[in-house]
Computed example of a mutant assay.
Amino acid sequence: MSSFMSSVDQRTNIVGQNRLELLMFRLQGSQPYGINVFKVREVIQCPDLSELPGANPNVRGIAHLRGVPVTVIDLSQATGGKRIEDLSHAFILVTEYNRNTQGFLVGGVDRIVNVNWEQILPPPHGAGKSHYLTAVTEVDKKLVQIIDVEKVFSEISPVDETVSESVKEKAKGLEVQNLTVLVADDSAVARNQVKRALSTVGIHVETVNDGRMALDWLKAKANELGGDITQAVPLMISDIEMPEMDGYTLTAEVKKDDQLKNIHIILHSSLSGVFNEAMVRKVGADQFIAKFHPDELVSAVQKWMNAD
């Protein structure tokens, strides 16, 4: 237990400094890709896979890991590339996203690198809307692409975005006139999920693509209103993993600004576990919610918009 908590401390210290660890991998050829180590539970050489009749074509089968069945997604094929054929040399990244455990089939795994979120940049302009990137960075003079896994999930196994009638009924008493909730997330899929959920109960939402944009937006609003903005923007919902500035650093920056510090902050991420619970306390966020459960999110928004 002491070594585990030491690991928690080390990783929260990295995240608190606007840094992250990327596990670099390949799909086809030499192009490097990256995934946040926080999301990876283990990396294994691809075992024999059991077929899953009727599954999405990008699902290669089921891996049995210590008796637990895990769905395996061909990440190359799911993002528009070629199917990974040689499974004898392939690997599976066993990950935890959106309250589920799944495996991503990849062509090869390289190494872990430590980078600053400021080095993680949005995809280049002109990439269009159909790409699968949330960000890019450079390692050893090579462009590393970071895949929008939430987009992959939404296409393979769409989540239920319906807000229940009971939650809608409770939200009727919420005074939302002239109030705005700011949503920061680098995934267009995730931004739209949150916006649709909150719109069903009449809440006005503004969206931005990363933590730096969110902080700039809030500061501009404070200058416009001439002080504390919580009467207009009582709540921000922020992803954790974002280019240029992560959600933890964004939260810390907001909480140390006299004009912004009273805004309630929900960290809303596909990351989960004890690391996030530790960081929520460390940076001063009000709540952590694992993506994506519309009833839980809308109920939390109602709670914090009603709070003093």
Rank of each mutant, 00 (worst) to 15 (best):
Q10L: 15
D160W: 06
G81D: 02
M305P: 04
S299K: 03
G16M: 15
A252R: 14
L105C: 03
I62Q: 07
W217S: 12
K39I: 06
K151Y: 03
S3V: 09
S88F: 00
V201C: 10
R212V: 02
E96V: 05
K219W: 05
D228Q: 03
A127E: 07
N223T: 11
V205G: 02
N192V: 10
L225R: 06
T95Q: 04
K261T: 15
V301I: 00
T230D: 08
T134W: 12
P294W: 00
N13D: 15
E21S: 12
V94Q: 00
F38L: 15
K151R: 13
I84F: 02
Y132S: 11
P124E: 14
E241L: 09
H131W: 10
A63V: 01
I237R: 06
S199K: 09
N192Y: 12
V167A: 01
Q287K: 13
S50A: 14
Q259S: 15
I240D: 08
E165I: 08
R281N: 15
T251G: 06
R26L: 13
M242F: 10
S270E: 13
T95C: 13
P124Y: 12
V15H: 15
H264I: 02
V298R: 00
L105K: 02
H125E: 12
V189Y: 10
W217Q: 13
T249I: 12
Q102L: 05
E224P: 01
V70W: 03
S3Q: 09
W117D: 03
K195G: 05
V205S: 04
N276A: 14
I266Y: 12
L121M: 10
V59T: 04
D148C: 13
V283I: 11
V70L: 10
G61I: 13
L75F: 03
D148P: 08
P69G: 06
H125A: 09
V274Y: 15
L87N: 00
D246M: 11
Q287H: 10
Q259C: 13
D295F: 02
P32A: 10
R26C: 11
V194M: 14
H64Y: 06
L23C: 13
V139E: 13
G126W: 04
V176F: 05
N192P: 09
S2R: 12
S154R: 02
V189T: 15
